[in-house]
Design a protein around this nucleic acid. Structure first.
Length: 582
RNA sequence: GGUCCCGUGGUGAAGUUGGAGUUCACGCCGCCCUGUCAAGGCGGAGGUCGCGGGUUCGAGUCCCGUCGGGACCGCCA
């Protein structure tokens, strides 16, 4: 139907008769016998010069045949790639008329309410932003596949219908028609399948896999999302990082046109100590400063005896607004700190002659003040924020404040990839059973140097587990898995899961390990998140064709919907009345 | 489950101390217009101010509730 794409017409085509197809964009009418039409397809727009009797409106679908010609002197549009040429002597065939759309399809500075965009998603996708993002996503997927294939990974598809497994995220359930009362679960990830594929001798598996989790949605979380899921046999940690690094590097190169530098590494401990989060945004400084020793003999009660005291210095040159915060803002920081679990937040504004402006200034000795200035490097105009609490709380609270104050918009700054290594095997203890809780999942291999601590000091045991972080976004995580049944049993027992229970819950998964499990490890990272960051989007909905709202609905299809009673009966289901709230 | 922000013609916004559905830009419809490109000029249509209560002589505006959207906390092994 067409010989050229609209956005591809150039001066080299001058003199040729060509045919383009697309949607009518803007029309500029100049009396009876002259009008300009912008015809748009996914590649761009081309200006067509037509007789004003041609009756077409916005978003009509047309086929235009005409002669490519140079635009007259002085009428060249430098803002568009096709701006030096136009289509003349046009014959316009209307392939379809169209009602005027609920919002403008051409790119506008004003953005449209997202509810309306989602209701008319097919029109939203017609616009430049989503066209660009979806095509970027496709090129990222393609680059990842190529990188994985090159490294000998075999693409294997795994089931969407699987048994429910007890641990981890809430699952979506699918009722069984043949066995009423029984359910399949949709996979939170192909974790169990891919480990079985290692036992099965696939050696290197990958899949761009759909994962489903029935947990509340966020800017970086949808019910369904895509992961590059991979697993490798006979490898150590470095082998996995290098293989996945190659895929990420290929994706980033495809998206941005240049390769990112070697992905740096940081221990989890260092990430927490310096950035207060396990997904540090390395695009900006404002690191956490250790000041516990400064206050070892302090008179100030809130600091005396605190396990960990840390500070951040809000530099007035970089963050003039935050550093000059008034009482309201400082109270808001304090509220935020308290909501994160801190007992309080100490703020100090450094004034002229380095005089402290702070409610607690009078409790601090001159020695302490001097030491604080020295450690934080604070100068006149800066704002110092201090938290004194248990180590984890101190780090997390200041890490959050650091992000709140300093984090640049997603489209700004360099791409800073970092592997966060040596995650703890267990994080905290179950308040009911007192058993430690897995930091990642129960199949992570403990760090060989720490295995002897498992029973005596479990919270000190590191795992061979690692996250990939980009500009403060957790892209994904992985680990070396336990392949020894005996060690797996030890971990389960520590988690308070008896051999019997483990067999009941994970039997289909654990049994096969008796038959010769190779050492293996793997990784998975979120394609949506990677694409969003590389597209400069704050929200993964902008890189997903048909996303759900924060409440999990689709305004276009109205999903989820009620179903016929007959349908339910067939599945052996009955819907309960909604619970009456008190 | 919780905190916060938002909801006004088709779209995006403004709406002051509570005083007539008022205003602006875009779009839409009609007319004029031969080199525009966010074309221009003139005219016109278009409203359950999300919904329901309450206060008031009077509510887009204040109060309560509710629905919807968004950000975050919890949650996401």
């Amino acid at each position: 139907m067409r010989t050229h794409l609209c956005g591809a017409v150039r001066e080299t085509n001058i003199g040729h008769t060509i045919t383009v197809c697309g949607w009518v964009g803007r029309r500029r009418e100049h009396g009876e016998h002259l009008a300009f039409l912008d015809i748009r397809d996914h590649s761009g727009i081309i200006q067509c010069v037509v007789d004003n009797n041609v009756d077409v409106r916005s978003e009509y679908v047309v086929q235009v045949t005409g002669v490519v010609r140079a635009r007259p002197e002085g009428t060249i549009n430098a803002n568009i790639p096709t701006g030096a040429v136009e289509l003349g002597d046009c014959v316009v065939v209307v392939l379809n008329s169209a009602e005027s759309p609920p919002f403008a399809i051409d790119a506008r500075a004003d953005d449209v309410d997202e509810l309306i965009r989602l209701k008319f998603r097919y029109l939203d996708i017609r616009r430049e932003r989503l066209q660009k993002n979806l095509r970027l996503r496709a090129s990222i997927n393609s680059a990842i596949r190529e990188a994985m294939e090159l490294q000998g990974f075999v693409e294997v598809e795994t089931p969407m219908l699987m048994p429910s497994t007890p641990e981890g995220a809430r699952e979506f359930l699918v009722p069984s028609r043949k066995e009423p009362g029984s359910f399949y679960a949709l996979p939170q990830s192909p974790q169990l399948w891919k480990q079985l594929l290692m036992l099965a001798g696939i050696d290197r598996y990958y899949q761009i896999a759909r994962c489903l989790r029935d947990e509340d949605l966020r800017a970086d979380r949808q019910y369904e999302f895509m992961q590059l899921d991979a697993e490798m046999s006979f490898v150590n940690q470095d082998d996995v990082l290098s293989a996945i690094g190659a895929a990420v590097t290929a994706a980033a190169t495809a998206a941005t046109g240049y390769a990112p530098p070697q992905i740096e590494r940081m221990t989890w401990r260092d990430a927490m100590e310096n950035y207060g989060v396990d997904k540090p945004d390395l695009r900006f400084e404002m690191k956490l400063v250790e000041v516990t020793s400064v206050f070892s003999a302090t008179e100030f009660k809130a600091f005396a005896g605190a396990q960990s005291i840390k500070a951040i210095c809000v530099d007035a040159l970089t963050y003039p607004d935050a550093a000059a915060s008034g009482r309201n803002k400082l109270d808001a920081f304090t509220d935020r700190a308290k909501k994160m679990g801190a007992k309080g937040l100490v703020w100090i504004k450094v004034g002229a002659d380095l005089v402290f402006d702070s409610p607690v200034a009078k409790f601090l000795s001159d020695t302490e003040k001097a030491a604080l200035l020295r450690s934080t490097g604070a100068v006149q105009g800066d704002l110092i924020l201090i938290v004194a609490d248990e180590w984890a709380t101190t780090c997390e609270v200041l890490g959050q404040l650091r992000n709140d104050i300093g984090r640049p918009p997603v489209h700004e700054g360099p791409y800073r990839y970092v592997w966060v290594m040596d995650f703890p095997l267990f994080v905290g203890v179950d308040p009911v059973t007192g058993a430690p809780r897995p930091g990642h999942h129960p199949f992570c291999h403990p760090h060989p140097d720490d295995i002897h601590l498992m029973e005596t000091d479990p919270l000190k045991v590191r795992a061979l587990a690692y996250d990939l972080v980009l500009n403060g976004w957790e892209l994904g995580s992985g680990s070396i898995r336990i392949h020894e049944p005996e060690l797996q049993r030890r971990v389960f027992n520590l988690l308070g899961i008896s051999d019997d229970e483990a067999d009941k819950k994970f039997g289909f998964f654990l049994q096969p390990f008796k038959y010769g499990a190779p050492p293996h490890g793997g990784f998975a990272f979120g394609i949506d998140r990677l694409t969003a960051v590389l597209a400069g989007e704050e929200n993964i909905r902008e890189v997903i064709a048909f996303p759900k709202t924060q409440s999990g609905t689709d305004p276009m299809t109205n999903a989820p919907t009620h179903v016929d009673a007959k349908h339910l009966t067939e599945l052996g289901l009955r819907v309960l009345p909604p619970p009456v709230s008190a």
